[in-house]
C-alpha cells in the first residue's frame, strides 16, 4: 500500500492505495464518486474522463498513485456546490440540447468538452468533433452533443447562443406505432 494525498472536487483525502489501483477505481470504490463511470476498460471510450490538475485524462489509464499531490475534478465537482447549485454551463447545454440518450458517455463527454472549451472557447463543428474524438457515444450519432458543446461555448463567452435556430435535432418523440398498438 502507498499513501496518497489528493484533492477531489474540492475536498482533501489521504488514503492508502495499491500501486495497481486505477484512478477510476479509487474514485468510484474508495471515494464513492460513482458519477465517473468505466465504459470500455480499454482506454478508448473516454467515459471515465476526469480533470487531473485541470487537464482531461482517461482515469482508467492513470494509476491512483500518480494522482498523489494533485487535484482531481470529476463530473460531480463541476456544478456549483450545494443542493440546487447551478449546473455547469456545459451540463446545462447537454440537458437543453438533449445531448444524450442513455447517458452513459455523458460524464466523460462533459469533462472532455470543458477541457476543449478552455483551450478553444469558440470551436467550429469540426473542431468540436475532433476535440471529443476520445469519447464514444453509441446512441446519439453525436449531432446533439456537438450542438450542446457549441451552445455552451456561446453561453460561456457571454453571448446568446449564436445560432437562433439552435435546438435539438428534430426527433419524433411520439411512441412508435407498434407501441401505441399495444396500449
Amino acid at each position: 500500500m502507498t499513501q496518497i494525498n489528493v484533492r477531489v472536487d474540492g475536498e482533501s483525502y489521504t488514503d492508502d492505495v495499491e500501486p495497481r489501483t486505477l484512478l477510476v477505481h479509487y474514485l468510484r470504490e474508495q471515494l464513492g464518486k460513482v458519477g465517473t463511470v468505466v465504459g470500455c476498460d480499454t482506454s478508448n471510450c473516454g467515459a471515465c474522463t476526469v480533470h487531473l490538475d485541470g487537464q482531461a485524462v482517461k482515469s482508467c489509464t492513470v494509476l491512483a498513485v500518480q494522482a498523489d499531490g494533485s487535484q482531481v475534478t470529476t463530473i460531480e465537482g463541476v456544478a456549483e456546490e450545494g443542493i440546487g447549485g447551478a449546473l455547469h454551463p456545459v451540463q446545462r447545454a447537454f440537458h437543453e440540447m438533449h445531448g444524450l440518450q442513455c447517458g452513459f458517455c455523458t460524464p466523460g463527454m462533459i469533462m472532455a468538452s470543458i477541457d476543449l472549451l478552455k483551450e478553444n472557447p469558440d470551436p467550429s463543428e469540426t473542431e468540436v468533433r475532433e476535440g471529443i474524438e476520445g469519447n464514444l457515444c453509441r446512441c446519439t450519432g453525436y449531432q446533439n452533443i456537438v450542438k450542446a458543446v457549441q451552445h455552451a461555448a456561446a453561453e460561456m463567452r457571454g453571448q446568446a447562443p449564436g445560432d437562433p435556430d439552435a435546438s435539438p435535432a428534430a426527433v419524433d418523440t411520439a411512441a412508435a406505432e407498434h407501441v401505441v398498438a399495444q396500449s
Binding site: 487531473l52 482517461k58 476535440g131 476520445g134
Partner: peptide
C-alpha cells in the same frame, strides 16, 4: 496521435 486525453499523458 490518439485523442485529446491520451495526448495529455
Amino acid at each position: 496521435v490518439a485523442d485529446r486525453q491520451v495526448r495529455r499523458r
